[in-house]
């Protein structure tokens, strides 16, 4: 019986690990003004494992990223790559699948690497649709200081799938 329970735990955990991930990122980039800037950022991002599609727009000031299934990328890695290219990463719109949890009276969505705390700006209606367990949402990740990035973010949810 214990073995069966252990097996179930392993399967559930394994399933969670492979599902909890960022699926899409539209990363706002400030300070990028020229084609070689965009080229450098695009090339730098393409070197990261787990990206399926990278498109950089100078006019929008954004990097549009589609992440592969079972990727292990974090938003922090993306923003650090932006900084490495000499620019400033600002807000990001993300689609994320993660584990919705309550911790000390606050709500958050966890992926394998990062925690996205639900921002107060998220509407009550959207918040009420989130149930403990795996959820998929779209939202705006609020800008953090480039030089002080952690694995914790504030997420203003705009859509619950």
């Amino acid at each position: 019986m214990k073995k069966i329970v252990l097996l179930i735990v392993v399967v559930v955990f394994g399933s969670f690990s492979s599902n909890a991930q960022i699926q899409k990122i539209d990363q706002e980039v400030f300070g990028m003004d020229c084609a070689p800037c965009a080229y450098g950022l695009e090339r730098g991002l393409e070197k990261l494992d787990g990206l399926e599609k990278v498109q950089v727009s100078l006019n929008d000031g954004k990097a549009y990223l589609d992440l592969a299934n079972n990727n292990n990328l974090s938003l922090r890695q993306i923003q650090e790559e932006v900084k490495k290219n000499g620019f400033s990463a600002k807000n990001a719109e993300i689609v994320i699948k993660g584990n919705f949890v309550e911790q000390d009276g606050t709500y958050a969505i966890q992926t394998g690497k990062e925690t996205f705390k639900i921002a107060e700006a998220t509407s009550t209606n959207l918040r009420s649709r989130l149930k403990p367990g795996i959820v998929k949402v779209k939202g705006i990740v609020q800008d953090e200081e480039d030089g002080n990035l952690t694995n914790k973010w504030k997420l203003n949810i705009t859509q619950v799938y």
Binding site: G31, M32, D33, G61, G86, F87
Partner: peptide
């Protein structure tokens, strides 16, 4: 360096 807008610094 102060990147303060889209394409601006």
């Amino acid at each position: 360096s102060n990147a303060f807008g889209v394409g601006k610094r």
